[in-house]
């Protein structure tokens, strides 16, 4: 059964001040099954974050529709969890309270909130930092809090918008391994936006490669590799070459295209 369906989605941004419009996404079609780890891969400006924002309900498609469990997405909702590129934690709340924010909105008792938060604090390896404020933690630790926050909500779908892009390479590798581990232990459906081919290959069960301007689905690749992924294995590099070839080909064709700004 299809869990998430993206049907004929198109997104046009109108700039009324300048009287121009930009087509960010065109004719996007794909579907995702439950418990898949899908990476949306594309260069900057290909509309991958826009697509994620529409799945989150921050923005509406200009045409087409997005269905989760056969229900059309009309706005934000706790059935989907979001992990932002910047951790986007409430700076006035401690780690524990940030993670249990969802439960507070549900009206759960403070004691229950704390207990529940603790499980996820332990899961992402932040034991001992329960009562720290976000500004007292490093970027990587804050991003762990953001992930724990989304996991606690137990959403049917977790959306991640380049969550590790701002981290240094060491922390990034750690976080990728950890996320892969968490996903293996507690199966969830995840859509993960990234511009890094390697990251997509380390994490995903499926990669959706987007092409540039306007964003289109270039190719959908199902990955058949064992975990943990070995970045030096022949199969890893075979996939990598395949994707890099796609990107180069796409670049050559798109350079001949008409300019992206069109006068309305």
């Amino acid at each position: 059964m299809e869990f998430l369906e993206v049907k004929n989605v198109e997104k046009v941004f109108k700039d009324e001040k300048r009287g121009t419009s930009v087509k960010a996404l065109e004719n996007i079609n794909f579907s995702i099954k439950e418990n898949e780890f899908v990476c949306l891969l594309g260069g900057s400006g290909c509309g991958k974050s826009t697509l994620l924002n529409m799945i989150a309900g921050f923005e509406k498609p200009t045409a087409g529709e997005i269905l989760v469990n056969r229900k059309k997405i009309e706005g934000m909702g706790a059935d989907r969890g979001m992990v932002f590129q910047a951790p986007t934690l409430m700076p006035w709340l401690t780690v524990s309270k940030n993670i249990s924010f969802y439960l507070k909105l549900q009206g759960m008792s403070r004691k229950k909130q704390k207990e529940e938060a603790q499980k996820y604090i332990d899961m992402v390896g932040l034991t001992g930092f329960e009562n720290h404020y976000p500004h007292e933690l490093s970027g990587g630790m804050n991003q762990r809090v953001g992930i724990a926050r989304a996991l606690l909500q137990n959403p049917s779908l977790i959306l991640m918008d380049e969550p590790f892009a701002a981290l240094d390479p060491f922390t990034k590798t750690d976080m990728q391994e950890e996320l892969a581990r968490i996903w293996q232990e507690h199966k969830r459906t995840i859509i993960f936006v990234t511009h890094s081919v390697e990251e997509a290959l380390i994490l995903g069960t499926k990669i959706i490669v987007l092409s540039n301007r306007p964003g289109r689905v270039n190719k959908i690749i199902d990955l058949d590799m064992s975990r943990p992924r070995d970045t030096t294995s022949p199969i890893f590099n075979q996939y990598k070459r395949e994707i890099l070839d796609l990107i180069v080909k796409n670049k050559n064709t798109s350079e001949r295209k008409t300019p992206i700004h069109q006068v309305i």
């Binding site: 989150a56 921050f58 934000m76 969890g81 979001m82 932002f84 986007t88 409430m90 924010f101």
Partner: peptide, 28 residues
């Protein structure tokens, strides 16, 4: 930060929740 409001919305906050638990403390 607009994303703070979005984060609140994605955790199921209604308008009142957003005012009370996100906007007021952020503006304090």
């Amino acid at each position: 930060d607009k994303n703070l409001v979005r984060a609140g919305g994605m955790m199921g906050a209604n308008q009142w929740h957003l005012l009370r638990y996100v906007i007021l403390p952020a503006a304090l």
